[in-house]
Amino acid sequence: MPAPSTSKVGRPGFVWALPAAVFFTLFAIVPLIMVAVLSFMSWDGISPPEFVGTDNWSRLADDPVMLQSVWLTLLLTALGVVLQTPLSILLGVWAAGYQRNRAVLSVVYFVPLLLSATAVSVLWRALLDPNFGIPASATWLFGDGNLFGEQATAIGVLAFVSTWQFTPFHTLIYQGAARAVPPVLYQAAEIDGAGRYRQFFHITLPQLRTSMITSMILMTVGGLTTFETVLILTQGGPGTDTTISAYYMYDKAFKSFDYGTGSAIALALVVAATVVSLVVVRLSGYDRMRGSTEGVS
């Protein structure tokens, strides 16, 4: 073994991390292990749990609702990213300007951010009432207004409400990032005769790259764990048409009192979310990234 370096100041001992480690163990690792164990058991909350081997898992593998829920989750996540990213980039870059009217309007745009997901969902369910809500006064667009009665429109509503709710948050990320772009870049571009569009595509967008990845990871994780929007807006319906994986887990565990199957879904979700995050981090090169203003300052 090579001799330790001459540096006298050692790295902080593990004790420094103890409080966080204990909390993480108590509230993340221990429950996770319990969920993993429970996924191999049959338990209704009343009688003692029984080991049933891989029954829960094999039943889930053959369950069309489970399979559909995976696709629905991915679809809603993808819709969220596709809808929110361009919207929040445009809004964020626009809001980054220091004009007074932009400041005032930005405040208005950020209002949804202050509301809880539950309040937002209750609000939209009422606003979209087919007889007394928005659909009733725009029949040319909504027809008979049966938005929650068909799969395509119900998914559309879910994607729209999430977008309405979370775009302000991502706008905030892009606003901050856009303001951090060194003005010298724009000044140089102007001297070179680049117009505003050119500046946007060749300076602003590339400079926002790290923020974009951060924002997309947050959107992906948020999309995969979406729950209360579905719980309140559609309850997974009509039938099982909007039953995403997280809602299906709740449905199994807390409505059907089948904690074993619920735990199996939960564990699958944890694994899936971890894999997706890892893939995103790898593909985007996020793990190799350094400061975004590298080579500028």
């Binding site: 209750v122 009432d129 008979d144 049966n146 009665g149």
Partner: peptide
């Protein structure tokens, strides 16, 4: 009617 699934009693 046609849109009963979008109507709620609870709201």
């Amino acid at each position: 009617g046609k849109n009963y699934d979008s109507v709620k009693y609870t709201n």
